[in-house]
Nucleic acid binder design. Structure first.
Lengths: 144, 144
DNA sequence: CTTGACCTTCCTACGAGGGGAAGGTTTATC
DNA sequence: GATAAACCTTCCCCTCGTAGGAAGGTCAAG
């Protein structure tokens, strides 16, 4: 199986597969004589695991940790669980942050009549000195 | 007021202020004879507006749009409102995505006994073929 | 033999900055 | 007036997880 097929099979892109190899998340793939990467079903299995972990929001680095646990047949399930719960807490923190923004935005929007007139409490609030840091608790976290 | 003071005053970093200038989000600052950037209270006002917008999760590009609306004294408040509501919908979409991950993780973790034994339903699930794409709806969205 | 669909490596860009080097300026203290 | 600390300047490279594309090699079908 070459990289394109492996990509279709796993829901990743060929680019991603090469990238994961380049950063050492997966072992270098076998190669044909002409240099094409070759994937066995066991490699596909690993790639699917990776895609699943990424889909659950684990970073690539965390995914490497999970892969190591997966391959370590003597791991304690408690280790996996704490890994998962730690990540869950991260996600919940992110959600809380986004919800703070949503609350503020909803509040501001609800006070804006939203017609053709120029006066707008949303802009007024954003421009007001007192509002600085109100809905931006502590740090300006990475958005996206 | 030089850049360091302006940064402290607005809650941004000096790097960010230079960056915003470099990408054209703000006008090039005035300079002293020796080349130091100088900020007037009106510039500080703008920087605070930016910080507030970023704190509400608007991208820099969206912030540029908001700034333009802010400066346009003839804008319709409806434009601002729709801008805000669009962003709100984006945030809500992001939250829903994260919550999907959380739900799955909570479910998986609740089925893991979390003791010293190696068998772990979390890893089992992640490795199972059928689970592919289950909690990763459609695209693998950028995490962080 | 040619065409098109693959594959390879390498380089660039994104967003939103952070870190730090090398060097100039300003301010406070002695 | 000298010196040291604390500023400032530009410049370039790093992050993270990809995507896009150029230049060139390979493979299967017609």
């Amino acid at each position: 199986m070459n990289i394109g097929e492996a990509a279709r099979e796993t829901g990743l892109s060929a680019k991603m597969v090469r990238y994961y190899e380049s950063i050492g998340l997966i072992q270098p793939a076998l190669r044909t004589e002409s240099g094409y990467r070759v994937y066995r079903s066991e490699d596909i299995h690993t790639l699917r695991f990776i895609r699943r972990a990424r889909g659950l929001g684990f970073s690539v680095e965390e995914t490497a940790g999970l892969l190591a646990l997966w391959r370590d047949k003597t791991r304690a399930s408690a280790d996996v669980k704490s890994f998962a719960l730690k990540h869950l807490a991260d996600l919940e923190g992110k959600i809380a942050e986004l919800e703070g923004m949503c609350r503020t935005l909803r509040h501001l929007a609800s006070h804006c009549h939203g017609d053709g007139r120029p006066d707008c409490p949303i802009l007024d609030d954003m421009a007001s000195v007192s509002a600085v840091g109100k809905a931006a608790p502590a740090k300006l976290a990475p958005t996206r």
